[in-house]
Amino acid sequence: MNAGIVLKQMVVIFLLILVGYILQKKKLVTQKDGACLSKLIVEVFNPAIIVSSVIGSSNNGEENITGTVFLAAVLFLVLILLAVPISKIFAGGCEEKKIYSLIFVFSNLGFIGIPVVQSIFGKGALIYVAIFILEYNILLYTYGYLLVMPSDSKFHPGSLKSLLNMGTLSCLLALLIFVCHIRLPYILGTTITYLGNVATPLALIVIGISIGQQEHLYRIFCQWKLYLFLIVKMILVPLFMAVVLKRLPISEELAQVSVILMAMPVGSMTVLLLKENHMKETLCSDSIILSSLLSIVSIPFLVYCYRLF
């Protein structure tokens, strides 16, 4: 990873977010339009880019699949364990501890993770992202639900049906195509590729639209405690992981992708979990917006530091 190249890519990402922000401020899109575009990205375009990443693949990284599955599980476990003391440091009450734990573990691997990894490493590296997203979804609908549920509630197995979403299914399909060397017909493969090409710019524009919808954006930038938390989440923890991963017998690309994914901003699904359980989502919403903007600087800085180890 070259820090200069990554910085240029993050500037491009920032400009795409800025386009969405301007569209919102100019009233060219409504809140309903933004919600509709988000749904299309989640249900159509992101799944398409995951599948298209393995179409025509040479399978050079097939030997890394098992290692990636194990590595992703270990990294998520580390995040869960670290979330306990970190949430105690930054949170004031029991509910706030749950929220800090939630936003510490669950990052934006889809909306921002996919565009960033693709822009830095190319489409071929998205097979690693697919594995991380697959495990992320399983964790979100099990640990995530248990974390924010009221203490007197019982976990309902029916909520596991949420695992059968387009994100999970597309990751499974991509792994199947990759491992089994399946060749899709040209027309089908090209159609999926075209749909996937829409994902990156549109997802970033939608983030800008979301930021533009905030009425009190200035308030978000005045939360020093949230800044400190995000520095720990998006810089210090990924740097610690980078030191460890660079010394493990894994491919350099897998190590780099893993570090980048661990440095992603807070995931948007966390807000939905809190709303579903009637918890305040202000802290969560603020962290999503602030971390998304900070990532434009934090990721190039992380890449620069990675090269020093």
Results as ranks from 00 to 15, higher is better:
N2Q: 12
G4E: 11
I13A: 06
F14M: 00
F14N: 05
L18E: 11
L18C: 09
V19I: 15
T30H: 00
A35N: 12
A48G: 07
S52A: 12
S53E: 02
S57W: 08
N59T: 12
T68H: 01
F70P: 00
A72F: 09
F76P: 03
P85S: 00
F90G: 10
K97Y: 08
S101C: 13
I103S: 04
F104N: 05
S119W: 03
G124E: 15
A125D: 06
A125N: 05
I133G: 02
I133T: 08
I133Q: 09
L134S: 05
I138Y: 07
I138F: 12
D152G: 03
K154P: 07
F155Q: 08
L163E: 06
L172A: 14
R183A: 12
L184R: 07
G189I: 14
T190F: 14
T190Y: 15
I192E: 10
T193C: 09
Y194E: 15
L195N: 07
A199F: 02
P201N: 06
L204R: 02
G212A: 02
H216W: 02
L228G: 15
V232T: 06
L239G: 03
A242G: 06
L245C: 11
R247D: 12
P249T: 01
S258W: 02
M264E: 05
G267H: 03
T270Q: 09
K275C: 11
E281W: 04
E281A: 12
C284T: 10
S285R: 03
I299H: 01
P300K: 04
F301N: 00
F301G: 11
